[in-house]
Design a protein around this nucleic acid. Structure first.
Lengths: 344, 344
DNA sequence: CTGTTAGCGCATTCAC
DNA sequence: GTGAATGCGCTAACAG
């Protein structure tokens, strides 16, 4: 039973190898790596340093974490990495992690509950110090798993029912009012709120606020619909019908998020409907290409980066033992008006 | 010294706790979790199952991996998560991982060499089974680190000089020829190749092919320039001058990647230059909004998802001990012609 | 069928 | 200053 090795698996030097190569004990090597200080004689330090370089030794974080119980790792679970919104938030979290000397591990759940559960489980079992979660939904199935893993956690954008946890998100009421008021001010008379069927609080809050606001202007028409984002046909029909229904009025649509805005714009393009002319178009989430699409698309920009930073900051506080009551951190959005909602 | 606990850190039950709660030994619990099979009596299985549920026990992957030396973890290092191209590749890698029962950990280096080194080190020290890398650059600094970590690795898109490693990428020669030929066929007479200064092979190959192809049509003008993506002013000047220089000719630009195409389009918009009319516009990488930007932007679409799948597939082969000579897997791109390069 | 034992690689008392 | 011994949580031989 000599040092037989698998074809691909290289031999990893251990602390023991280094110790014997440096003709010393494991303790000194460990000290060299951590405490270091001045507890070692120069001669020993020299020998150990050479041995490490020679063997290309890398301490095993596995073993190290097992011993210490600390990983300095943060998990970020994202529902849809395809969404630029999420990516921007991630960048904020990442920058903040670096600041704190933490390392970020990102997991994409692809909007699937199974995956969310899997990653939650995984990160927990690897004993990350904390998790930032952009939850898939607020259905019950996820909740149990989330509660089960009782480690510091912060939610982003989407809340989870019956789960007490800090949440970082947009001030949806304020934002939706801004957007609705903007459309009304620009002279639109019939408004359509388009959303996906997902049962997330973000969608519900925006929709509710929209409807409430519209009730204050009974002379205007408020409609809403839910469509599967991938069902292009349904989307097209919906737009066509909305326009036909209000042929004599100035119409506008409001999309609940950026991904949807993209699909709606595409559908309009296919149908030959021109935003800013035939119809008003606006949506939540800023889009990098918003100004390039025809006369430009009006968006509601979220301070995504700052939100990411705030999420990590709150998480770190929890990790450090902060036990204040659960907080709901709401950020203000910014309306960026473009040609798609220009007044007549 | 009783069970004193830190404020935030919850007590995690260990296998020993479960064993004693179930009035049995650790081995049986371990068996229950792994081998399971039918080595356990029903009564014992019952007891253990209850104990696990009661204590909310979750085995520590740390300890488990330490013992087995296997993590079933794959690391993905991405240079710029902001780039939709990377995200699409990630989705392919992810799907393939799921297929193989592997778990993907994503790290974003933000195009910083330091971060790349850090993550490489980290993933290696956590003994992931393999790494898929979208390298920051091909400068020497990175190479040493890459070589140091001698664990299965596959490169995506960008090669690293002097580092023998499988690479999955686009067939840049073919793709560039397609794009160049397309522009010439559409009647453009002066072509400008715009790229970022980064020293990555992808850029160089595309540029080289472009210049070579243009040499075969001496009657046409070929120019090239490098600009910092964040330097909007330089970009605008460059465009203005190119247009002024060839006022009597049909002109077109070719952007080396999608991020750049976005910036170029923005700059044109600011300058009042209309693509498809004043100038031709095309770029590598498909863009979700390409058809929405004015008359549409011509792009060269890469089979990103498939590339991600292929990358993981090759990595798995290496992990399983495949020692074939290093491969260069090149995928064919697809030219998607849109209004921005329409013939007169 | 089930429990005891011995490490995986490392950090850490505690002696020398 | 330095090193031997112990245990983190878990798996796998090896006995009963």
């Amino acid at each position: 039973m000599s040092k037989k090795q698998e074809p691909g698996a290289a031999v990893r030097a251990t602390i023991r190898d280094v110790a014997s190569a440096a003709k010393t004990g494991k303790t000194s090597v460990s000290r060299y790596l951590n405490g270091e200080k001045d507890l070692l004689s120069d001669a020993l330090k020299e020998r150990i340093g050479r041995a490490i370089a020679l063997l290309d030794y890398q301490p095993s974080q596995m073993a190290r974490s097992l011993k210490s119980g600390q990983t300095r790792l943060i998990g970020l679970i994202i529902a849809d990495i395809t969404n630029p919104y999420s990516v921007e938030v991630m960048r904020g979290v990442e920058a903040a992690c670096r600041q704190e000397g933490l390392t970020l591990l990102v997991c994409n759940t692809n909007n699937e509950l199974d995956q969310e559960k899997h990653y939650l489980q995984l990160l927990s079992s690897y004993r990350v110090d904390g998790i930032v979660v952009n939850a898939v939904g607020m259905r019950e199935a996820a909740i149990s798993t989330l509660q089960q893993a009782n480690l510091p956690m912060v939610l982003i954008d989407r809340k989870v029912a019956n789960f007490a946890c800090d949440v970082i998100g947009l001030n949806n009421v304020e934002a939706t009012q801004m957007m609705t008021d903007h459309l009304l001010q620009q002279g639109f008379e019939a408004l359509l709120f388009i959303s996906e069927p997902a049962t997330i609080n973000t969608r519900l809050e925006r929709l509710r606020t929209f409807l409430q606001r519209m009730q204050q202007s009974p002379q205007h028409i408020a409609e809403q619909c839910e469509i599967e984002i991938s069902n292009t046909e349904a989307l097209e029909n919906m737009l066509r019908e909305f326009i036909a229904r209000h042929s004599d009025k100035r119409k506008a649509v409001m999309c609940v998020n950026g991904t949807l805005t993209l699909q709606v714009a595409r559908a309009m393009r296919r149908l030959g409907i021109v935003w800013g002319q035939d119809i008003g178009l606006s949506g939540f989430d800023e889009l990098a290409w918003a100004e390039l699409a025809g006369v430009g698309i009006t968006t509601l920009k979220q301070p995504t980066y700052e939100m990411g930073v705030a999420a990590l900051s709150q998480l770190v506080a929890r990790i450090q033992g902060n036990t204040d009551p659960v907080k709901d951190l709401e950020f203000s959005g910014e309306l960026i008006a473009r040609g798609s909602t220009a007044a007549r």
